[in-house]
Design a protein around this nucleic acid. Structure first.
Lengths: 246, 246
DNA sequence: CGCTGGTTTGAAGGTCGTCAAGAAGGGTGG
DNA sequence: CCACCCTTCTTGACGACCTTCAAACCAGCG
């Protein structure tokens, strides 16, 4: 795997060997960088003609608001993740994007993206694959909210988050930094912040997870995986080497 | 809108004017037809090298099973819908597909699909747009399970279903056939069948919906929309006329 | 006629939400 | 330096929504 400062390159390198030219192509795709404060809205719900982004550093999330003021977090975006790519074909965005820590994002030019697909089809396939993986995450999220208990959801959440962070070199086997507060977690998991708090205490008492000052430590990985029924298959499927001979 | 027996053509024709050549292209894409019984698995979870399908007639659903035997329905597929297209880039399917009424499906040849994208870019864009719309539906589903009460979920579910059926000419403003049983609904909505039953009674008593022998009638559309907080925006966004001048 | 799949009903209990308030920081301005 | 925020985390009591368990009911069908 080529050493790289770039999160997207690093993420894709877990699954496909990128040539120097392909790394260069990806780097250029992300050349337009922009710093944004924590808690700024990149795209609001119903916005038309919005762009797509790649998160370079920091934390972000995508969410929908309900008429009664409720909020549902769809996904958390980590460095190396695409944001808003999926809905680029729908004229108006069906959900909002916001950062919740100081971040750096790259805006993606659609024109350039299309050029990447024609000039570097392997990179194009890798991008589509990454987007498909994100879709699989949303599906898994849906399953969790629909059919898992609160403690299973929380357990699953941290395992998935740790796994994703490992892929971009931001987590060890058992530890990572995490700027999330319990309100965000609650709105992601379909719970209240109060209940999330109680569940975290349970997990701490059972010696599974400790969470202190933005540092997460998973103290019993196996126990947590059993509890959550965690299967990482949807996160680390290898990218098949498609042939674009059309 | 060109008159057509084909559900996919009919669905897309709601949003884009298809030329005769484009209709022909879509028809050919769906030429390989296959009849399947009710309740047959098309793709099972974890299957590798699975294909993609277009549902021609009948009802299907895609779901995941949990270790404890629970089931979460992700989406119901209606005639004209793609099935398994999203996960074609992931080697193994992250979820299962099954029919629950006698159906006809077309298997999609990946080669041919790629050919369509190069020869008929407008059709390609329309397909991507349809897939994006399906993604938006999954997101809306997630929001519903995470943040809506049981009665709101059920109300939202029937409004969305009716809306989708209208787009393929299978529903009037207020009535449609619906082969779903309450177990399937429950597994889609993150509830138990027993509770779904009670909610349906509530809706009937309030004069909003009647459901008898597979026929659904929405007797108070406005009331139901208010109750559900329904906004159909994610279903009928026009397809922007993208230029593929790359 | 009994079987099966689906709907309906009742009673009891648990998970999780709501309301209310206290505690622990961290930053700001006096 | 301290008073005063603000945000976040924490704790407790109470209640509601939804589940669980159990069983009756109904229609279609062999």
């Amino acid at each position: 795997m080529p050493h790289s400062e770039n999160a997207l390159v690093r993420k894709l390198s877990n699954f496909i060997k990128l040539s120097a030219g392909e790394v260069k192509c990806l780097t250029e795709l992300q050349s337009a960088r922009e710093s944004v404060d924590g808690s700024t809205d990149l795209v609001h719900e119903g916005q038309t003609g919005h762009g797509a982004y790649i998160l370079q550093s920091g934390w972000a999330y995508c969410y929908k608001l309900l008429p009664d003021g409720g909020r549902q977090v769809i996904t958390f975006s980590l460095p190396g993740d695409f944001m808003g790519l999926r809905s680029i074909l729908l004229r108006t965005s069906d959900h909002a994007f916001a950062t919740f820590s100081d971040s750096v994002v790259s805006t993606i030019s659609v024109k350039r993206l299309i050029a990447v697909f024609t000039e570097f089809p392997r990179v194009g396939a890798a991008i589509l694959w990454a987007v498909s993986r994100d879709e699989a995450m949303v599906v898994e999220h849906l399953v969790g909210i629909g059919r898992r208990s609160a403690i299973e959801r929380v357990a699953h959440f941290f395992l998935e988050l740790g796994h994703r962070l490992q892929l971009v070199g931001m987590a060890s086997e058992t530890k990572f930094e995490c700027a999330l507060n319990q309100y965000l977690m609650a709105d992601a998991l379909g719970l209240t912040a109060i209940h999330v708090n109680r569940i975290l205490q349970q997990l701490r008492e059972q010696g599974m997870i400790t969470l202190k000052e933005g540092r997460v430590e998973i103290t019993d990985v196996k126990g947590l995986m059993d509890l959550a029924g965690y299967d990482s298959g949807y996160l680390d499927q290898p990218l098949p080497l498609l042939k674009f001979d059309a």
